[in-house]
Simulated scan of single mutants.
Amino acid sequence: MSENTHCILVVEDEKGIRNFILRSLESSGYQVISAENGREAKELFLSKCPDLVLLDLGLPDIDGVQLIPLLRDWSNVPIVIVSARDQESEKVRALDLGADDYITKPFGISELMARVRTALRHRGVSLTAQPEMDEVFHIKDLVIDMRKHQVLKAGKEIHFTGTEFKSLALLAKHVGKVLTYDYILGQIWGPHAKNDNQILRVNMANIRRKLGENPAEPKYILTELGIGYRMLEDEE
């Protein structure tokens, strides 16, 4: 396979898992560098400027969660957590600190590669960015036009309330990324709605109903239980 121009930093202290990830990425043509601990990770991040970071949280010298804000201060490159920690609170904390995605061990290589491709496609997007008023998003058969305040599905217009439209546009802006409940609430309703997930659930249910989506087989919006929501891409 031809060489990929993307460089990926793998931060993983378990040799077997690290080598498995390295071989998988290299066989797909990516350039790969690796670190066994937080100190090496910081040095390689600053010297090599990778396009994406795969970060384990259980490092020998530092909790990987502590690395996230440091890396985010230096760059907006995607950070995908690869960890055995499967508690919802751990996932939410990592995502709120600036991680772009979270994969729980054990994982399938096809899932890992799909998440890597998704993150790289959107590596220039910051989670703190707001949708620009003149942007047009194309997600599957949806067209979301910010200037016209219009949503088309397969060419047919669907009416959304102002809050529903802003929520859909926010997810589209960050397509493929998990947005936590608190992040969405803060962006759409402001800090006064903190922890009021019920209003968000009702809002998302209305959006899905208008999109004609079956929550059991989501086509557009995936619920990450206990964490938040993700706008799906064609590949997923």
Rank of each mutant, 00 (worst) to 15 (best):
D145I: 13
E157V: 14
P218S: 08
G16Q: 11
E14M: 02
E135Q: 15
G162P: 00
F160D: 05
D182T: 14
A205F: 02
K210Y: 02
I139W: 09
L25R: 00
M231G: 03
P60C: 15
D96K: 14
Q150R: 15
S34C: 12
Y229C: 13
S110T: 15
G212R: 11
V53A: 11
Q187M: 11
T128K: 08
V202S: 06
K219Y: 04
N197F: 03
L112F: 08
A119T: 00
V11P: 01
V178C: 14
R123E: 10
C49P: 01
R117G: 11
G108C: 11
E36Y: 03
E43D: 12
Y30F: 04
D100K: 07
L112T: 08
E135T: 11
V10Y: 00
Y102N: 11
Y30D: 04
N37L: 04
G64L: 13
I109P: 01
Q66S: 15
R85W: 03
A84R: 03
A205S: 14
K105R: 03
G108D: 07
L95Q: 00
I139P: 07
A84Y: 02
D101T: 10
E224N: 09
D73N: 13
H138P: 07
R39D: 07
M113H: 13
I81F: 07
I139Q: 12
K166I: 01
E3C: 05
G176N: 05
S2R: 12
V82M: 07
L168A: 12
A94V: 02
A41N: 06
I221T: 05
A172G: 08
V53Y: 00
G162L: 15
G186Y: 03
N197T: 15
R230A: 05
P215H: 12
K219G: 13
V92E: 12
K91N: 05
S28K: 15
V125D: 08
R85K: 02
E111P: 01
L211G: 07
D134H: 13
N214R: 10
F165V: 11
L67A: 14
R39H: 10
G124K: 06
L71D: 12
R18N: 13
R72C: 06
K42M: 06
K140H: 00
V136T: 06
F20S: 05
L46A: 14
F45V: 13
P69M: 01
Q66T: 14
L54F: 01
D196G: 01
Y181Q: 09
K210N: 02
D134K: 06
E90C: 10
R23M: 11
E224K: 13
I207V: 06
S75E: 03
G16I: 13
R39N: 12
H149F: 06
L112V: 05
L127E: 02
G38R: 09
V125H: 01
G212Q: 01
D141K: 09
H122M: 15
G64E: 07
E40P: 10
R72S: 04
H6G: 09
E217T: 10
G155E: 14
S2K: 12
E26Y: 02
F107Q: 05
H149A: 15
I8L: 11
H122A: 04
V65W: 09
Y102Q: 13
